[in-house]
Simulated assay, not measured.
Amino acid sequence: MSIKTGDQAPDFSLPKQDGTSVQLKALLQKGTVVLYFYPKDDTPGCTKEACSFRDSYESFKDAGAEVVGISSQSAASHEAFAAKHRLPFTLLADEGGKVRREYGVPSTLGLLPGRVTYVIDRQGVVRHVFNSQLNATRHVTEALGIVKQLQGAGAA
């Protein structure tokens, strides 16, 4: 079962690229969270998506949102990926894919881990879901548009 707009986002705790643990509930206390699941560090589409989030990061911060990427690679892999591409946001290691399964992120052709972005408001409610394996940079424009709408509505 996949998480849809209007659903409560499942809480989780995962290690980030420096090895420290991050809990969704704690992030939501600070504002809106843009949670994006991506297939793998340092692949062409994932790099393009991550760099797109990087290039728009200040716009997300200005709108009261934090960007968080999740894939199944280790914290060490994420640390190298973030350093190589100067990523200013958190990458979480979902080794084994437990959180990916909790969110119901589909696989592409049953093989590749899916690429899905969730915009989650401060109350933990999913306000937008965008699923596209091939349109990596559109995740950023979709999410930023929703975050700005939430900010305008006072929900960010």
Rank of each mutant, 00 (worst) to 15 (best):
K25A: 15
Q73N: 13
V125Y: 08
P44H: 12
S107T: 08
S21T: 14
A26K: 10
K98M: 09
F89T: 04
L112A: 11
K40T: 02
F53T: 04
E142I: 05
E49K: 03
L109P: 00
R138Y: 10
L109I: 06
E102Q: 13
V99H: 04
I3F: 08
F37S: 01
N135K: 11
K30S: 10
N135I: 01
Q23C: 05
F81Q: 01
L87D: 02
H78E: 06
Y118M: 08
Q23R: 13
V34E: 04
A75D: 04
S72M: 11
D7N: 11
A156S: 15
G154E: 10
I146W: 06
G64Q: 07
K84D: 08
V68D: 00
N131A: 15
D62R: 09
S71R: 02
T141V: 12
A9Q: 04
K98S: 12
T141D: 13
R86V: 14
S74M: 10
Q29P: 00
V126Y: 09
R115H: 07
R127Q: 14
E95D: 09
T32H: 06
A156Y: 09
A63P: 00
E102C: 02
H139E: 05
K148P: 00
G96I: 14
E66D: 07
V67E: 03
Q123D: 15
S2N: 07
T5K: 13
I146E: 09
Q73Y: 06
I70H: 02
K61Y: 08
R127G: 06
M1W: 06
Y118S: 05
L112Q: 02
D94W: 08
G152F: 10
A26Y: 00
L27R: 02
E66C: 02
E66L: 10
P44C: 12
G64Y: 12
L134W: 12
G97C: 11
F60M: 05
G104Y: 06
Q73T: 02
G64L: 13
A50E: 01
S71W: 05
Q133P: 00
L35R: 01
A153L: 15
D42I: 08
T43C: 08
F81E: 00
K84T: 13
N131R: 09
K30M: 03
E95M: 14
V126C: 08
R122Q: 14
T47F: 13
T108P: 00
G69M: 07
A143N: 04
R86P: 00
F81S: 01
A93Y: 05
Q123R: 13
L144E: 03
S56T: 02
G104F: 10
D11N: 15
G145R: 11
R100K: 08
K84E: 12
G110D: 05
A63M: 02
H139Q: 03
I120K: 02
S2F: 12
Q133V: 09
T141H: 09
A9L: 11
G152Q: 14
S74W: 11
E79Q: 13
P39Q: 10
A75I: 03
L27K: 03
P88L: 15
R54D: 05
F37I: 07
G145F: 12
L14P: 00
H85I: 14
